[in-house]
Design a protein around this nucleic acid. Structure first.
Lengths: 225, 225
DNA sequence: AAAATTTTTAATAATGTGTGAATTTAATTT
DNA sequence: AAATTAAATTCACACATTATTAAAAATTTT
């Protein structure tokens, strides 16, 4: 599963780094920003999955940042507030924060909240069953049925097939596939795609109605007759 | 999973709406009532699964509403009471309240308690015996019958099995299982799930028709042939 | 306090993934 | 049409990740 990317926004550099250490330990990718403006910049540039947003910041406060973000995205946001600060719950809620935490907090609790929020948010990209003749790809059960038989498939192969099959007849370059299936900043070689295509192909054999076709000099597509 | 329906009863409209926002975010369906009488009306009309009940209300107070509800239903009720108000715990308990919260409260604490209460007293409508070949899982008696024999199972293992078996063929990540079976804010490690799966498996041995299957790189599912 | 259950830890086992090099295929040039 | 070049395929193995398990530690229940 592709790790989630989290943007941490706090004017206190130490807090940022502390949080970073914990989140990295949990396998998250972390971006940091120390003020509202650079937060928005990173938010626009990177495809982050969740934002931890401190409220009290010089120049642009957390509420303003949140308001700005909400103009274009429903990305999950957890507000951070120092004990004693008056945190206007209602305001945060109305602006669309998903949760909030009072500093200082237990790292474990932070991680739990992040997981809960991400879990809640993810189903939004409702995955659906894809069907063609002799082929059913069901992301709920993670099963591929080919000519009535269950085909076991490791996650990467499944994701690749699922992605291609959900966009039939559209060609993707290897780089596009790496981006879509492997993740936004996957550093690896594009040969990797070839190998996975091969593995999917040998599990799905030749077929009349559809196949993963090579578009020479360009990439691959899931072609349907 | 079918979302639970919650009735929020408070004479303060703002509080009602605040709670509504939070609960909707958690995926609950929310009904609101601002006095005892309309609360009872909704309670009778809709099949709600849990009631949040403010005590101090004009006309008919929370105790009276609870008393009325208890004449015909064991539905879980969480009492709400403002700080400073004299709240008679004993009375609330005697009348059969399941829990109570003092306002102002942390929304996430409210959610945690709701989940806890619902897990304990799953509404009768949703609580059902699950049956497969050679397997009966009865949530009323907390008993698992496997090939005609009673299988003793500690609560966590039972809950895990029950959850998986009530959603056959659907894969859940470890995090999802922690969220669904362990609870909203469980901070623990996801290896915990593995261990429980192992224990359930060794009690239920190999079986042709169904099994708890590992979906490599993803999670677990209760697979049925 | 003892027993039962749950959680954590850590070592081991199982499985999946990515890479370079060799090979094959396709397009282009001569 | 043969030779050349570029791209795609394939292989196999090292490496990485994930799952399983046993056992110890912590917690809860009795």
């Amino acid at each position: 599963m592709v790790e989630s990317k989290i943007l941490v926004v706090d004017d206190d550099i130490n807090i940022c780094e502390l949080i970073e250490v914990y989140l990295m330990k949990e396998g998250y990718k972390v971006y940091k920003a120390n003020d509202g403006e650079s937060a928005l910049k990173i938010f626009k540039e990177k495809q982050v999955d969740l934002i931890l947003l401190d409220i009290m910041m010089p120049k642009m406060d957390g509420y303003s940042v949140l308001k700005e973000i909400r103009r274009e995205s429903q990305i999950p946001v957890i507000m951070l507030t120092a004990k004693g600060e008056t945190f206007d719950k209602v305001l945060g809620l109305e602006l669309g924060a998903d949760d909030y935490m009072v500093k200082p907090f237990e790292p474990k609790e932070l991680v739990a909240r992040i997981r809960a929020v991400l879990r809640r948010y993810k189903p939004l990209s409702q995955k659906r069953v894809i069907e063609y003749t002799d082929l059913v790809i069901d992301p709920d059960s993670y099963i591929v049925m080919y000519k009535g038989n269950k085909i076991e498939m490791p996650p990467k192969e499944f994701d690749l097939l699922y992605f291609l099959a959900s966009n039939p007849n559209k060609v993707y370059t290897r780089d596009q596939l790496l981006y879509e299936v492997w993740g936004y900043d996957y550093p690896g070689d594009s040969r990797t795609v070839d190998v996975h295509v091969k593995r999917v192909r040998e599990k799905l054999m030749e077929n009349e109605e559809w196949q993963i076709k090579t578009v020479w000099g360009v990439g691959y597509k899931f072609e349907v007759k």
